[in-house]
Simulated assay, not measured.
Amino acid sequence: MRAWLSLSLSLLFVGGCGGTEAVPEESTGPRRVTLVTPSAATESDGVRLADGAIVAGGGDLSLYQAMVLSLSSPTPGSLCAKGTFSALGDVPTEVDTCPAGLTGSWEQRTYLSGATTHTTEQSSVIGLGLLVWNADHTALYRLRVIGDSYDGQGVSTATFDVEPVP
């Protein structure tokens, strides 16, 4: 079985009794996030990019298993692969070129590792740097993949550092 990351770049609105909760203040520093699927063909909880909180049933990014590990957005033109970098701060923030993408331009999906069983340390995309728009293309983030994994029980992970682009 192969796995893919579903990048659900949608705004999260949290409702409560009698009103809505305040949206957390945007963080300007990097965060490390790990998304985990509990088993094959299930979706992980999401991460809210603005503050790094793991959100059940929502968020801006989530991990999903299917054929291959990939980052995917509901909005075309949301992902720009920049290449491999040793640090998050090294990922370029120019929005005009995407040299590591399949088409060399902004895409809806970026592929990560293949469907073979592997650990995070064996990931083939360690250091991959991306620019990522949220679903409404109102906030831009830079992301650096720390690694991904796929185990024999169908559990996948993706770990990455992410920070907003000023």
Rank of each mutant, 00 (worst) to 15 (best):
G127A: 10
A135T: 08
L131V: 12
S124L: 13
T138F: 03
S123M: 05
W133K: 07
L140T: 02
T138W: 01
T103Q: 11
H137L: 06
Q108H: 05
G129E: 08
T103F: 01
H118D: 06
L131T: 15
Q108A: 12
S124G: 11
A115D: 14
Q122W: 05
Q108N: 06
L143R: 04
A115T: 10
T103E: 13
L131S: 12
G104C: 03
R109Q: 14
G114N: 12
G129S: 04
T116E: 14
I126C: 00
L140W: 06
T119N: 10
L112A: 03
A135E: 11
T119S: 15
D136K: 05
T117C: 05
H118A: 06
H137A: 13
Q108V: 13
S105N: 13
T110I: 15
T117Y: 15
R109G: 04
G104A: 04
G127E: 13
L140S: 05
Q108K: 15
A139N: 11
L130A: 11
H137T: 01
Y141T: 14
T116F: 08
S113W: 00
H137M: 02
E107S: 03
A135M: 05
T138M: 03
I126D: 02
G114E: 06
S113R: 05
L128W: 06
D136Y: 00
L131W: 03
L143I: 09
R109M: 11
A135N: 12
A115C: 05
T117R: 12
G127H: 09
A139L: 12
T103Y: 04
W106N: 07
T110M: 08
L131K: 12
Q122C: 00
T103G: 12
W106V: 04
W106M: 06
G129V: 03
W133D: 02
Y111F: 12
L143V: 14
T110F: 13
T138L: 05
R142G: 11
E107C: 01
L130W: 10
S113A: 15
N134I: 04
G127F: 09
Q122S: 14
T116L: 13
N134P: 11
A135L: 12
S124K: 09
T117L: 14
S113E: 06
R109F: 04
V132F: 05
G127C: 08
V132C: 12
D136V: 03
T110Y: 12
L130T: 10
Q108R: 15
L128N: 06
Y141N: 11
S105A: 14
T138P: 02
G129R: 09
T116W: 07
N134G: 08
G127N: 11
S105F: 07
S124I: 01
L140P: 08
W106E: 05
Y141E: 07
T120Q: 14
A135K: 10
T116M: 09
G104W: 04
W106S: 09
N134C: 02
S123Y: 02
G114M: 00
S105I: 04
G114D: 14
V125K: 13
T110L: 07
T116V: 10
V132N: 06
W106I: 02
H137I: 00
W133Y: 13
S124V: 04
G104Q: 08
H118L: 02
I126W: 00
G114S: 10
W133S: 10
W106D: 08
A115V: 04
I126R: 15
Y111Q: 08
A135W: 07
T103R: 10
A115L: 07
E121H: 02
T117H: 09
H137P: 00
S113Y: 03
G114Y: 01
E121W: 01
A135Y: 10
S124M: 06
